[in-house]
Amino acid sequence: MGAGKSMVDFRRSLKISLVIAFILASVPAVRGEDRRVPEYRLKAAVIYNILKFVSLPPDKRPGNELVLAVLGRDPFGEDLEVLRGKTVGGRTIKIVRSGNLKDLRDGHVLFIAPSEAWQITDILHSPLVRGKLTMGDTEGFAEKGVMINLVVRERKIRFQINNKAAKREGVNISSQLLRLGEIVAR
């Protein structure tokens, strides 16, 4: 076969690289960080971790679900789906999405998408957000009263905490989380 013959040199190169790959693989396991993760894949993971450090007001409804409601145009796409079915404090995460707050009344956590920035004040004043943990990822949301707001600073995710808003709704944010976040209002 013609194509095979002159591959000899290349094969030798491959061999060298395989040896190098093995050398690299034998380097002792190193803990470290990945670079350049898709933004919303990372934000989804951060949200999941944050939920572990937050206790929500007691829920009178039956069932053992934690409903994560996304209001507005969902910026996560597939990346939020990894949270579906995972558990936080013994509760299984369920994800619902809608452009209408009325459809999300069962949500325990309300993530307000950037598309809703124009009506953020109205949303936060709505009786439908009572008792919910509000989250967002838009500059200025925390100041307006969103309890936990994710922002990107120097390519890294940071979160702002409006603890005043959280306390008002009976949402308890652990001191561990308060230490890692940027406090906008106590």
């Binding site: 960080e33 990945d34 670079r35 350049r36 993760v37 898709p38 933004e39 894949r41 990372l42 989804a44 993971a45 951060v46 999941y48 971790n49 944050i50 450090f53 990894v82 949270l83 995972k86 990107v152 390519r155 890294k156 995710i157 940071r158 989380l177 890692l180």
Partner: peptide, 15 residues
């Protein structure tokens, strides 16, 4: 990524 602790997630960079 959800299996990583929060402190480590905060060190990752976004695209």
């Amino acid at each position: 990524l959800t299996k990583m602790p929060l402190e480590e997630l905060l060190r990752l960079e976004v695209e």
